[in-house]
Amino acid sequence: MSKQKLTIAISGLNNVDSPGPGIPVIRGIRESVDIDPRIIGLAYENLEPGPYMREFVDKTYKVPYPSEGVDPLIERIRYIHEREQIDVLIPNFDSEIFVFIKLADKLGEMGIHTFLPTLSQFEERHKSNLPQYGEKHDITVPDSRPVTSFEDIEDLVRKGTFSWPLLVKGKFYDAYMARSADQARIYFNTVSAKWGLPVIVQEFIKGTEVNVVALGDGSGRTVGAVPMRKQYITDKGKAWGGITLDDPSMLDFTHHVMAATRWRGGMELELIRTPQNELYLIEINPRLPAWVYLAVAAGQNLPEALIKLAMGQKVPAWTRYDVGKIFIRYSFDMICDLDAFRKLSTTGEL
């Protein structure tokens, strides 16, 4: 049977020390047995490695940051679509998911398929809403509060709502453990300067961080899920090595989240396993994570399944994966011609 030719636009090409999921997602799609993809990279910066990785990305277009507004972004997508006839678009940054959910209908009218969570699914799982989310869906979560000033953190500690240590988190990325008011002030300023307000204060749960990459079809069904433990963590808290786990309780947890929320699209669950073997949900990232290729290697090509779901095709649910599969990330110096950099910088295309 011949492969289905699809043009797929993908962002998150910053394959750096805190990598976006773009390249790993592309890697999965390129290994599809059913899809013959043409990959269109959507880049925000001239030095994102993805555009220069020609074995993964066929053509790259620079796009405006979502923070510049919806109109410039959709106009740019329209321009790209006229040239490339995009079939599916997969945004891979937390910070752009909201905008693409808003644009999903417009993209659909243009013939560009997406497979994203609904706006309410996306909004309710925000870190600042975690306690309400846990209560609504019967999920164990640590106490979290949105704050808009350092004084709010002091108040929460004074009232006994939180005690040291606690976590200071950005609304999209970054988390710091503050052991004192002095540290909390520094982290509040760091996080708010980078990601804006509110900043999230979260109860510190002692235990081991474990993660699940999963894909939901929007009906409550889990199409695939692979649990992993980070074995090597960078100073930015990113996994630089990890291993797939045989942990039925993590899969049960994931199936429950999927069924309760009817999640549509890729997700990463960040969990803490306490010494008493309880699982706490600390975060849901509304997209496939940068370590998704581990799931592909373990037998679940979730990026391929995501494309098929976006195209309205039926995808059977996986029931197994290889346990003890390890990923080890590495850095590599690509050598590029100045001409490629010039082209992307001046024309916005490569």
Binding site: T208, M228, R229, Q231, G242, I243, T244, L245, D246, D247, V323, G324
Partner: peptide, 18 residues
């Protein structure tokens, strides 16, 4: 039961990844 133990003394616990 789930521990994988090799003849060379390498022990892998698949539930924790240790």
């Amino acid at each position: 039961k789930s521990l994988a133990i090799s003849e060379t003394g390498f022990v892998f616990d698949p539930s924790t990844g240790d």
